[in-house]
Simulated scan of single mutants.
Amino acid sequence: MISKTNNFVIRLLDRAHLDTGKILNTYIAALIIIPLFFAGFVTYEASLTAQSLAAILTATPIIAVDMVMMIINFIFGYYLWLNKEKILADLPTYRFFMLYQAIGQVMAGNFICVLLAMGGLVRTNGINQKEQSNNKLIRGASVIFLLIFGLCLILTIWLSSKK
């Protein structure tokens, strides 16, 4: 069953002409564009309700938590945009990055990035598992952002249950 699903995903990626480089570029674009749309939505809501941004964030703290996650996504997307050649040059780093991003983006609820990260993992399926990632900065940033997303998820669940 897993083999059939894997083959289906590979055929889908082949038809879309998505290799590891194009997946990473699309992922970076999503990490940069989605937070901008979210910020535009919050700004639009503030103008419609004639409230300040601080009033909206105080009234609905879940939006504040989401804004923290979007800021992290934007910063990480910008960092990746500057260093995408380093990630693509080291496929174990790419695999590690995509695995941690898939987990983190599930916590953030950003399912477009989850699908892209899963596609990146499928594309690197043949890499030797024993190789370690050489880029410690990307590895550390991935782990830190995963922990922040976990904290934001816990905070979101706590705020939702508080109502």
Rank of each mutant, 00 (worst) to 15 (best):
D90V: 02
N128P: 11
T60S: 08
P61T: 10
R139F: 13
L121I: 13
A102D: 03
Q105F: 13
L57N: 06
A54M: 10
M98T: 11
A141C: 08
Q101N: 15
I103V: 14
F74E: 03
V114P: 02
T58S: 13
G119S: 15
N110A: 12
P92M: 10
L121T: 04
D66G: 11
I63F: 08
F111H: 05
K136G: 08
K136C: 04
F97N: 05
G126K: 12
P61V: 04
V65F: 08
I56L: 13
I56M: 02
A64W: 05
I127Q: 09
T93W: 00
K136A: 12
K130M: 13
Y79D: 07
E85C: 04
V143L: 15
I103H: 00
D66Q: 11
V143A: 13
L80R: 01
A117H: 00
S142K: 00
F76Q: 02
A89E: 05
V114H: 06
L146H: 09
C113H: 04
G104K: 00
Y94K: 00
G126D: 14
N135E: 10
S133L: 09
I138H: 14
L146E: 03
T58Q: 14
M98I: 02
G119L: 03
A89Y: 08
G140I: 07
M69T: 10
Q129H: 10
L115T: 14
L82G: 12
L82Y: 05
I71N: 01
N128T: 12
M118A: 14
L80M: 13
G104H: 02
N135H: 08
Q105G: 05
A117W: 00
N73P: 01
T124G: 09
K84E: 09
L116H: 01
W81R: 11
V106L: 15
A50H: 14
I63M: 04
N83D: 09
I72P: 00
P92Q: 05
Q132D: 10
E85F: 06
T58G: 03
A102Y: 06
G140D: 11
I148N: 03
N83W: 05
P61A: 04
E85Q: 14
T124K: 08
E85S: 14
N83S: 07
L121D: 08
N135V: 11
L147D: 00
N128R: 11
Y79C: 03
I144N: 10
I75H: 02
F74V: 04
